[in-house]
């Protein structure tokens, strides 16, 4: 960080133009924007929503019926022909990825002290974010539950009905 002279200009300014006595306190303007504040709020807001989305996801996929044993192509076919689960999974994908990526950004900032290391790690992080979010979104919306020529045994029952 190049913070050696941070604050000095503001002090000089203060000395030059003293505030009138008992004028109300005004926060010093920062030039950095409010990014970290918004990110802090987002971590909390998305966390609350994710509790519902993730617990619902785990319950339906792991607890109902035969749980993980029941998951196969036909199971996914049954879920993603329903717009409700499409929207659910899309929201979960985006919120979890932004929340997780932002969390990892914090962790990188904490431990990677060299500028180059930090830059490279964050570059990889944002690359992974982009690939996974684009891939996941495409899959949810281009999914074909009854692909032509596939073994009907492997498909949801409504494909052959």
């Amino acid at each position: 960080m190049t913070n050696a002279t941070h604050g000095t200009p503001a002090v000089a300014e203060r000395v030059g133009t003293l505030d009138a006595p008992r004028s109300p306190y005004v926060r010093k303007k920062t030039t950095r924007g409010n990014y970290e504040l918004y990110s802090w709020v987002f971590m909390r807001a998305s966390g609350v929503v994710l509790v519902v989305l993730v617990f619902g996801h785990l319950f339906v996929n792991l607890m109902v019926g035969d749980g993980v044993e029941a998951i196969d192509f036909a199971f996914v076919g049954g879920k993603w022909t329903n717009p409700f689960w499409q929207v659910w999974d899309l929201l979960m994908l985006w919120l979890a990825m932004i929340h997780g990526t932002n969390g990892l950004r914090t962790i990188i900032n904490d431990y990677a002290e060299r500028d180059v290391t930090r830059g490279v790690l964050k570059g990889l992080l944002y690359l992974a974010f982009t690939i996974v979010v684009v891939l996941g979104t495409l899959v949810i919306f281009t999914f074909e539950p009854c692909p032509a020529g596939a073994d009907p045994e492997l498909l949801a029952s409504f494909c052959t009905a």
Binding site: G136, L138, E144
Partner: peptide, 8 residues
Amino acid sequence: TALVRVSP
């Protein structure tokens, strides 16, 4: 999960 786009 993206493998559902490859084949059953």
